[in-house]
Design a protein around this nucleic acid. Structure first.
Lengths: 232, 232
DNA sequence: AAAAATTGTGTTAAATTTACACAATTATAG
DNA sequence: CTATAATTGTGTAAATTTAACACAATTTTT
């Protein structure tokens, strides 16, 4: 194969911000590093892009190693490329955020990576520019979730509207009106009533819904305005 | 400096989609390649990331070489990273789109790069995955311009509301109601009446406005809903 | 002076959003 | 077994926003 005469070849990393929701608060899956550099400190899950690997494949590989899950929803945010962002060697990092159902992921995979779910509000200081990455990821999550139905990715297959509301309240860190929220969500026609009710509840049992996957696909790009402008 | 034992270092390219507006149609600044590979074919403007260069600096360098302009509005879209996207050598490409005032840019810089303004509707086939890049850039432009006041970047310092409307009609390739558009734009309070009128017009001379830069900065992230959902 | 093209500003009905109130369900306490 | 507390489902009226449309004013050309 012919090669470009240009000589600067650079390490390409991928770093993933994995969001989860435990029913109360937004969580991050973070790595307590048991390897160098920066052993003992907290970081995002990452890895290097391999020579014969598509970028998208690499992202899926890293997410699979961390969570044991395939077909995770993820979205590229930005490439971080300051010259000295990694003190070991010039490395650019393509940064993604992923949304997973916190109860579906494989605990063993996480444990093997020395990963823990950390409440977003108690997040520790992270290595390199990973703090900035998380800040940006949260911003993007808020941006995207206000307009597109991505919140569902953080919930189990079947969920109630009050659960969904708590999720949105966690994402935006603000209370929402129960009645208006319910109407807004139902008016999208993205939810299917399963006929079942949430048996966990200690009071009135809420209706369990599931996502209408076809409508979700076809309407994904439409704006839904789940959250009013002033909330963001 | 210590280095990572990992061995796969990859060429990192940047490719820019430069949008312009001539008062009637959206334009792309494209390169007729007078160099290998793919000499004689059309492509986007690009370049390689240098060893001692921040990613953002590289993007600005490439835009400056092409247009002679600094402080251009640009936005990262996505990194293209299929293994065989470049037949010469594995290269990932970080893709940006930029918006410029077509009349402010330096013709000589463009000429030196063998670049031409091409009507978006007549765009030629481009090399590699550059067609996909343009498709995605147009999608992103439409997405962003529906919500945030980025259209102004494509216009001269002083402009009229009818000019702005023509721009939006070009971006979305659909007609807009003159009266509702005007009200919507003015209600953002982002425009300042300069007191001048457009002397070019052959009929009633329209008021020349300019952007309120402070409000533009402070309100950039707010949603403005310039375009209704159904238009996108 | 009239005609043609374009610009600025209203107006009204429909749709949406906001801010609330009330009735129904279910575990728990007495 | 009943009352209570917590939570869920649904409704309603006022305010705001959007959509659809009309008319008057300006300027060049005929």
């Amino acid at each position: 194969m012919n090669k470009y005469p240009h000589s600067t070849r650079i390490l390409v990393a991928l770093d993933c911000i994995v969001f989860g929701f435990d029913g109360e608060a937004l969580k991050l899956l973070l790595i307590k590093r048991n390897f160098e550099p920066e052993q003992g400190k907290w970081s995002l899950m990452g890895g290097f892009l391999e020579e014969e690997e598509d970028l998208e494949v690499a992202a899926n590989r890293i997410l699979y190693d961390l969570t044991g899950l395939k077909d995770i929803y993820f979205e590229e945010i930005k490439t971080f490329g300051k010259v000295n962002r990694d003190p070991v060697e010039r490395t650019i990092s393509i940064c993604f955020f992923a949304l997973i159902n916190i109860h579906a992921h494989n605990q063993d995979s996480a444990k093997a990576q020395n990963a823990y779910w950390i409440d977003l509000k108690n997040r520790p200081n992270l290595i390199f520019d990973h703090n900035q990455m998380v800040d940006l990821a949260l911003e993007e999550l808020r941006y995207k979730a206000a307009l597109h139905p991505i919140g569902f990715e953080l919930l189990p297959e079947k969920f109630t509207i009050p659960q969904l509301q708590k999720l949105y309240e966690a994402i935006y860190d603000s209370p929402l009106d129960r009645r208006n929220f319910s109407r807004k969500i139902l008016s999208t026609n993205l939810l299917i009533d399963t006929g079942e009710k949430n048996q966990n509840s200690t009071t009135k049992k809420a209706i369990l819904y599931q996502l209408d996957k076809e409508k979700y696909q076809s309407q994904f790009s439409a704006f839904h305005y789940f959250i009013s402008d002033s909330m963001r």
